[in-house]
Design a protein around this nucleic acid. Structure first.
Lengths: 348, 348
DNA sequence: CTCAACGCTCAAAGCGCTTTGAATAAATAA
DNA sequence: TTATTTATTCAAAGCGCTTTGAGCGTTGAG
C-alpha cells in the first residue's frame, strides 16, 4: 500500500502561498487587531485548507511558555498502586486544559522520587504549572514548589503547612463527622473506621471528624476500631474480617472508599451477615464512573463528592494562577453529601 | 516569607561560567566523543552545581523531536467512564518513558473527537508517537495513523484491519475459551457471558473463545446468556440479576473484568446464593493493584494477565518504532493464565 | 497643500538549544 | 624543518514560531 508522504505545512510556506509576511499570517491566526478582517478570513481559510497548525515546539520556544500542565502522580511502593481516583480526577481536569490549549503531562513516580521529578520539570521548563496529588500531613512538596516558583494547585490540603497555596479539597472532616453522627443517632455505639494511610492528610481529617463525633456523643474512642492502610479491596475485606471476628465486633463500619467498601461487603457476606440488617456500613464515595449508582436508594449509604468535579475545579484554579501570576492563593472546599442507602439501618 | 527568585541557568550562562563555547558544553553534556574527558568532567560538574538541565522547549525545536508520547484515552459518552485499567497500563508505560527521556502527554477525549485529536497532535508536532487505546473492530484510527505517518502501538488489536501495525494484546480468545472449557469440564452446561461492548475488539474475541468452547463441547449457544455493555459494577450486578431471575438460570457466569465480577457477586448474594457453591463465576483479571489478590487460593477463579506489563511492553515497542523507523511491525501476545479460586465448583 | 493619525503590512531579531563546517593547537610523520 | 594528522574548540546558522519597531499608503484635520 502506498500513501502520499504528508509533511505538515509551516508558517513560512503558508505565508508564501498567501503572499503575505509571516508576521501578518501569525497575527491573523492569533487574533491580533492589526489585521484587516478581509485578510484574516483569507488566512484562516488557507490555514484550514492546508491543515495548518503552528508547530508546538516552535511556539513554545518563541512564547517562553510550555502550554503544558504537569501531574505528578505517586505510585505507592508498597502495592505499586495507583489510586483509582486519579483517572476520574484527570478526566475532569483534562477537559478544561483542552479548552484553554494546555497539554497534560503525566508522570507516575515512586514516592521517594517526587522531589527530583518536580525539580527536573522546572529545570527543563517543561510545564507551566503542576497539580500535587495525594498530599500528606506536613507535605514538603508545597514549600519546594513555592521555592521553585512554579504555579501549582493541591488536590487536598496539607495540615501543618503555614504558607499559602491553592487547593481544592472535599470537607473530609465534616463528611466523616456527619457519617459518624448519623450512625450514632440511629443507635450505633460500636463504630469502626477503615481509613487510609495515617500519613495522608485526608485520612487524618477523616479520623478527626470521626473522633469528634464520638466525643460529642460521649462515646469512647477505641484503637481496636481503627484501621489505617492502603485502600485496596483486600484491605477492606481483611480489616472488616478482623473487626467482625474480634471481641466486641462493631455494629457499624465506615469505609474510606468504594473499593474498600466492596471489600467490607465481601467480609460481611463471608461471615454470613447481611449488610444493612446485621451490620451498617457507610462509605465515602468519589463518584467514580464505574461504580456510579444512580438508583433512588443506592446500595451504600455514602458521603458522596465527585472527584471529577474536583478535577475541573483544580484545573480552573491552576490555569488562573498561571495566567494571572501574583494573585492571592485560593482554596475551594467541596461539600460531600450524605446519601442514605441500603447499607445502614437503625440498631435494633 | 521571602525567597530568592530562582531563575534557571541556560546554556549560554553555563558556557560563560566555564569559559567555553556553547558548542563544547552542549557536546560535553550529550556525550559526544570530540570533547576531552577532562573538559567533560569539568562541564558535568558545573552543570550539576548550577542545577542545569537543557530547556526542553529549545531542545525540542532544535532537534525536531518532541520527546513526548501521546496517549489518547477515550471517555465513553454513555457513562463518562474512563476504563479503570488505564491507570495501571500507563503506570507500566510511564516507567519506560522516563528511562528513555520521553514525556507522557495524556489526552482524554470523547469517542467522536478522537480523529481530530490525532490530527491535531500531528499538525502541531506535539508527540513522536501515540498509544491507541480500546481498539474497536475495524478501527479506523489505524488507517488514519498510518496515513499521518505517526508511529503508534495499539493496546489490543483490531479485527478486519489488513494493514500491519504494532500491537500488544492478551490472548482474549484463548483465555475465554479456556475459562469456558474449564466450566464445561466441571459439569456446567448453562454458562453465561457478561461481556464488554459489542463493538470492542477484545469483547468480540472473548465471545468467540466462549462460543468456540461451547461448540466444541456440543453446547448450544443462547442469546439469553450473553450480555454486552460498558463494564461497570452496576452493569455486572444488573446483568447477573437478570440471569439469575430469568427462566433457566445459568449455573456459571463468566465476567469480563473484576469490576463486573464484583457486581455479579453482589447479585449472587442479593439472591441469597453462595458463590462457588450455588453458582460458579470466572472473571478476567487485569491484575489491577487495588484488587490484587495474592492468596494461594484467590477469591475469584480468573484468567489473569497484568495490564501493567502490557503497558511496559507497549512502551518498549513504541520507543523502538520511533527511534528505528521503517522497521517491521511487531505484535506481542501476552498469555492470560487461568487460576482456580473459590468462586467455582464442579456442578453437582 | 501639508501634517498627523490611522490602518495595514513587513523585515528582522530573538527564544535556547543542536549541529555544521572551520579554525586552532598539539602531535606525529616525512 | 615542514607537511600532515589528530585532538579540541569555536563561530555561526538554523529549528519555526512570536514580537518589536518601522514603513507605507490613505484619510481627515488644519
Amino acid at each position: 500500500m502506498t500513501r502520499a508522504l504528508k509533511t505538515t505545512t509551516n508558517l513560512k510556506q503558508l505565508s508564501e502561498i498567501l503572499k503575505l509576511s509571516q508576521t501578518t499570517v501569525s497575527r491573523a491566526l492569533n487574533g491580533f487587531p492589526e489585521v484587516s478582517e478581509k485578510t484574516r478570513q483569507r488566512v484562516l481559510q488557507a490555514a484550514e485548507q492546508q491543515n495548518y497548525a503552528p508547530n508546538a515546539r516552535a511556539k513554545r520556544l518563541a512564547t517562553g511558555r510550555s502550554m503544558a500542565i504537569g501531574h505528578v502522580v505517586p505510585v505507592s511502593t508498597e502495592h505499586e498502586m495507583v489510586n483509582p481516583i486519579f483517572a476520574d480526577f484527570i478526566a475532569g481536569a483534562s477537559a478544561r486544559y483542552a479548552q484553554s490549549g494546555y497539554d497534560l503531562l503525566l508522570t507516575l513516580v515512586a514516592d521517594e522520587d517526587e522531589f527530583s521529578t518536580y525539580k527536573d520539570l522546572v529545570a527543563r521548563s517543561a510545564v507551566d504549572g503542576v497539580v500535587v496529588h495525594a498530599p500528606k500531613i506536613n507535605d514538603s512538596r508545597i514549600a519546594l514548589l513555592n521555592d521553585l516558583d512554579l504555579p501549582f494547585v493541591v488536590h487536598g490540603r496539607s495540615s501543618g503547612i503555614t504558607e499559602e497555596y491553592n487547593w481544592v479539597d472535599v470537607n473530609n472532616e465534616g463528611a466523616f463527622f456527619t457519617a459518624t453522627e448519623y450512625l450514632i443517632e440511629t443507635g450505633h455505639k460500636r463504630i469502626a473506621l477503615i481509613n487510609g494511610q495515617t500519613e495522608m492528610d485526608f485520612a487524618m481529617r477523616r479520623m478527626n471528624g470521626y473522633r469528634r463525633a464520638l466525643a460529642e456523643y460521649g462515646i469512647a474512642f477505641s484503637e481496636q476500631y481503627l484501621f489505617a492502610g492502603e485502600m485496596t479491596e483486600p484491605y477492606g475485606r481483611h480489616s472488616a474480617m478482623q473487626l467482625l471476628q474480634g471481641a466486641n465486633p462493631p455494629t457499624a463500619i465506615i469505609a474510606s472508599s468504594m473499593i474498600v467498601a466492596n471489600g467490607v461487603r465481601r467480609a460481611v457476606h463471608d461471615m454470613g451477615l447481611e449488610l444493612g440488617r446485621d451490620i451498617s456500613v457507610v462509605t465515602h464515595d468519589d463518584d467514580l464512573s464505574y461504580f456510579r449508582d444512580d438508583s433512588a436508594v443506592p446500595v451504600f449509604t455514602a458521603t458522596r463528592s465527585s472527584v471529577r468535579e474536583a478535577g475541573t475545579k483544580s484545573a480552573d484554579l491552576l490555569i488562573n494562577a498561571i495566567e494571572k501570576p501574583n494573585q492571592e492563593k485560593h482554596g475551594i472546599l467541596l461539600k460531600a453529601k450524605l446519601k442514605i442507602g441500603q447499607s445502614t439501618a437503625p440498631l435494633k
